[in-house]
Amino acid sequence: MNGDSGHLGDAVPARDGVSDADADTHADADTHADAGADRGAGSAVLLVVRAGYGATVQDLGRPGLAALGVGRSGAADRGALRLANRLVGNPEGAAGIEMPLGGVELEFGRAATCALAGADCPAWVDGRPVGPRTPLAVPAGARLRIGTPDRGLRAYLAVRGGLDVPAVLGSRATDTLAGLGPQRLTAGQLLPVGTAATGWPAAEHAPRRDRPGPVVLHVVPGPRDDWFTPAALRTLCGEPYTVTADSDRVGMRLDGPVLERARGGELPSEGMVGGALQVPPSGRPILFLADHPVTGGYPVIAVVRRTDLDAAAQARPGDVLRFRLG
């Protein structure tokens, strides 16, 4: 669609046989006692009791394939997934669960160590409250329930050993736009746990990085700021923009003052990056996140710095964003 669709979800291709194959694999793990034998001793299985609001399996994605039309995808808040993995002794890129607004409940087939990071969700193991950003010992048969965060959007759960769902093009990430990787979590699904753990972290708890007030995102102007009036960039960096409900892993549609174009028409398709503020004909920008299209045809007025992208991914509908040059 190259960004010419009216809604973020319009460009989502239908899922193909790859995803169906994944579903079959999960079913096999359920019905055949020996299905996990090839995965060795790490084949503990998590049962999804409640799937939340679009929870997905994510790792650090599929870098290096954009020239073939495959975006990077992976955790929208990469720092949070990395932290959760470090807290359970996993490699930073092990697959975990990304949970927008929490709401997930899991039953553990055997004892496991896990950790939550990202948006602070209330959480309970068999009804006992547990905290975020610290390793949690979950006994065999116990249920981990993750509530809804008061602020922030995406929580991450890492399980020691990593989730061992089948990799597609070298990654276990769900790319919701391209339809690659595992399907979204569904109730009743079984998630195998692998053997990715490499050791134990030096710290048992990671402090919270609190950011009071509006979310401030630093931007680099361009590449197509010359397609807009000189006032447009000042408006973008001077006025508040509100995250709308039309937001997902592809991007966030923002509400705020219109960014006026100095010239009409569409660009020939060009490469897009995470953090790009693409401006469709409405004049209100879309901030691209992890599953953004590889190429697009609407001009990008500015790009959020890589170091602020994790914070952008934690903005939820209704939150106010402030953009700053620099």
């Binding site: 102007p221 590449p223 990056v273 790009v303």
Partner: peptide, 27 residues
């Protein structure tokens, strides 16, 4: 914001422009 360069390519057929695209890419 934008970097326009007018450097002719080696065979003299035209010019390319290098535009910043965030903190870790150019277009």
């Amino acid at each position: 914001a934008r970097v326009a360069t007018g450097v002719a390519t080696a065979d003299g057929t035209g010019a390319v422009r290098v535009l910043r695209c965030g903190s870790d890419a150019v277009l």
